[in-house]
Amino acid sequence: MIRLSSSQRSGLVGAALLALVLVAIGLLTAYFGSRYQVRLVYSAYVNLIVVLGLQVFMGNARITNLSHSAFMGIGAYAAALCVTPENIKKISLPDAPWGLAQFSLDPVVSALIAVVITAVLALLLGMLIVRLTSIGATIVTLAILVIIHAIFLYRTDIFKGNQAFFGIPQVFNLTSVIAIAILVVIVCRLFRESRWGIQLRASADDEVGAAAMGVQIYRLRLIAWVLGAVILAVAGICYAYFLGTISARPFYFNHVFLTLAMLILGGMRTVTGAVLGTFLISFGLEGVRYLETGPVFLGIDLPEALGLSGIALGAVIVLTMALRPTGIMGNREIETLFVRQRH
């Protein structure tokens, strides 16, 4: 029997509370939602997994990462390449090298391969990143994003660039993504409260001090980086397995900023913040998109206003940074709202 520390026990309580919220939203959607709304909520859950993957590294090591969408793309493309049936690949990827079009695997094995590929790539790239400090590390992650996107666009024989990579079996539904999201929430929360998580957060508060206490900062950052990448790969797989088609465009700057805004609004230091920010922005943006189309609202015919959702997203980032830089949740997790903390 593993003895858990008090913060780990409250971490499990918090994860359970968040799981309840996730299940509740899922049930509401499944019973009352239209097809379109189910799709929408599904993509919110995929973004939630992305934001959680981002939180593992950004929230604990507090280094801004801009390459997360690229890792999601790697996961999605790797799984798609493995799982798509041969006959479809022969049509869509006639020039694929290395016999990529000559095999197909079942979804679970494909997903595992995709996760392993992403993890290995993340490990190699991570070894370069963890040694850098704040802005330098951010620039290198930016470079990774640009390079990987360029490769997606350039190797059209494998990835089809901005054209649709189609024919991926649609094996996932809302239930599967909710189950995975809950699992990821638990993993993130346990990592945050583990020895590694606590040491990493200490190193973010005071790098020199933590190193002097014997914290192996580079190693911990690397662990968080690879764990984050694995979660991002899972998000990419969920995306591909539901939609059945992917292209390079959704794994670039727009998605980077969208998910970053989610994490910032909720508060990147906590898992609760990641969940809260994702749902606030996902559902908030849908409201703004409705206004964008120029609806008739309270008898007033509003004009069409393209770009409104972008303005809202940017404004959320600016206002959060100006008014509450640690996000809505700050350092508080969900269970602290219900349970009085003993000091």
Partner: peptide, 24 residues
């Protein structure tokens, strides 16, 4: 007075707002 990361993210936000203002 904030740290560079906060400033960087604010600037990203400002950049998105302005781009979409031009668009709108």
């Amino acid at each position: 007075k904030a740290d560079p990361t906060t400033g960087l993210l604010t600037a990203f936000g400002v950049s998105i707002v302005l781009q979409n203002l031009f668009l709108l």
